[in-house]
Write a protein that binds this DNA or RNA. Structure first.
Lengths: 193, 193, 193, 193
DNA sequence: AATGAATGAGGATTCATTCAT
DNA sequence: GATGAATGAATCCTCATTCAT
């Protein structure tokens, strides 16, 4: 009987290597060879398990998204009021597992590849739809008809902080970033005289 | 007037072609051949004038930045109060000459290339520094010590709206985007009870 | 009876799969993986039993030739006159077990591989020699010194009908093909005024 | 001004190199690199002028067919009677420019590639249609309703002699081959008692 | 000023084959 | 007996870049 069960191990290693390489390079110009080398395997094996480079990238994208989704789910679990829910979503976005430079860089790369790769576009649309819907749903009780545009503003600010984190030189402070959004939410929600 | 040489004409055409191609493709995967073809010249000529592909990209980046800078300068010219200045900067960011899909896509590509190309990083840093300084300077009289973080929030939201415009399917409304930022500024500036 | 080992079963399955795949693709561009998959085994097993891809092909070639040889032998068994012998050989060439598209395609592929693979060339030479000698031998009593060239003409026509059957789109009629050759033989044999 | 007019020269050289390499190898397993090397250029240039390997092959196929067509046209020019026309077609098929080993090997390779490449199939169908129609047309006055099947027999014999010339070891005699077909035609045409 | 000609370097992908279990 | 794991070698193709004219 042959050696067994390597597939999930290799797949995970290759996905991790992909994220690492994209994060390091800060660009999508990553070769299968580089990914494979970092994962400690041959380029041929990468193709053996994934078929194409695009499939590797998509797997990495799904991995990142599932981490994010888990973070959001966990954060929402303990949130009872609408406002707490909004804040939970924001905090999840800046959780350490998400807000690492390499993860964010990958995020942005997938944003980019969605321009070209239909499946990437689909995945991204799902994520964006879910985020917007989550935000709107929680904001509605607080802001009524203004919930939609508030959700847009919040999502935009999050994306902006992401791009600055992912592409700017020098790591930034996740807490600080989260606070900026939370402050914005405070201003949106709290009645003005 | 002396008869103009072809050089500036060709350079401009190539820069315009670069922006167009990046905007169309939505990615940095643009070849010198594509750029040259769109500009109606041979790839060899592109190299003749620019030396390298990177130099073509940098020229395009400078072009976009100078348009943006002009727009900001013009907007600031008519602004008398601090708040008007802040709003002018924002409006300039969403002026039609900037907030076109292809221009924004190029913007983001340059953001990306700053990861790899030192000169691009330098240019981007200059721009960001100027934007932040402009915002801070105008916000200071209104927000005092909170000006810095307010400037960060505003800049982040602008970037976020840009990325959504540049990479999302379906053109968006510049006016709507500007209003989101202006509303945010309003909430920042207006005193809360 | 001893329990049969798996070896002959696997070998047969792989040979059959090889012929099937070549016939389906209509080309020699068949991978060991495809052959193994059709045979329901792993590519590694194919190598285990045959050593190399070339050996698999040669086995398939031998298989086809032995079927052909059996068909000829059977046909000759009932033939008593020289002319009946010639016709038996022709009929065997167009017997259903030979004149199937996939078998003929394989035939031609082996013709091809004889260009490169010495052992294939040897096998093919044996077959051609036997066919020619069979034909000549039977034609001699009828045509005397012209037997050799008549045998050449007949063999060529058979090959030509094969290539048209094996490589032309749309299955053809074996009976019709056989009749063409038989008619030719009639014209060769029957005295002209 | 650049060096000019190389394109047709290179294209011709590459087509010739393709035929040569296929003829030498006796198989379609010819790489672009080999073709380019024989043509004295880089593989990249071959792609520059032809785009794909398939396109190179198709060009070579068209080249061979046009030579053949020219040969037939020339032979038919001097033929006045139906029988002379039939014989002219046959002689053209065995003219020295066609019946060279490398040309015939290429012929057969294209026969093969027609299995896979639609455009090759189309070209081959055109050739076969023209040949059959030429033969039928000339045979009709001589054989009436039997013309069709006679044409089939003749075409098959020609193909058979081709495959033997193209794939058999040791060059054969074109004159001998032609005579076999001419003799066959004689037997088809001349009345039997 | 401009370009056709040409290529070296590199990258995705395929595949026969080997090996440890 | 059988196979999953793994890879080296090869192939097509792309592209920035150079050069002679």
């Amino acid at each position: 009987m042959p050696k067994l069960g390597m597939e999930p191990i290799r797949r995970d290693a290759l996905v991790a290597a992909t994220i690492h390489e994209i994060g390091t390079k800060g660009s999508l110009d990553v070769t299968v060879g580089q990914i494979a080398r970092r994962a400690g395997v041959s380029p041929a094996l990468a193709h053996h398990y994934f078929g194409t480079k695009e499939a590797i990238f998509l797997s990495a994208m799904r991995h990142i998204m599932s981490i994010y989704a888990g973070e959001v789910r966990a954060a929402l679990a303990g949130a009872e009021t609408p406002r707490a829910r909004v804040e939970a979503i924001v905090r999840a976005s800046f959780a350490p597992s998400n807000f690492r430079r390499e993860v964010i860089a990958s995020w942005l790369m997938f944003y980019l590849s969605a321009q070209t790769v239909p499946e990437a576009a689909r995945l991204l649309a799902v994520y964006k739809g879910r985020l917007a819907s989550n935000l709107r749903h929680s904001l509605r009780p607080l802001l009524g008809p203004h919930a939609t545009e508030a959700a847009e503003g919040i999502a935009a600010m999050i994306d902006g902080l992401y791009i600055r984190q992912g592409l700017a030189p020098g790591a930034q402070d996740a807490g600080n970033a989260a606070n900026l959004v939370l402050d914005y939410i405070g201003r949106l929600v709290e009645a003005r005289p």
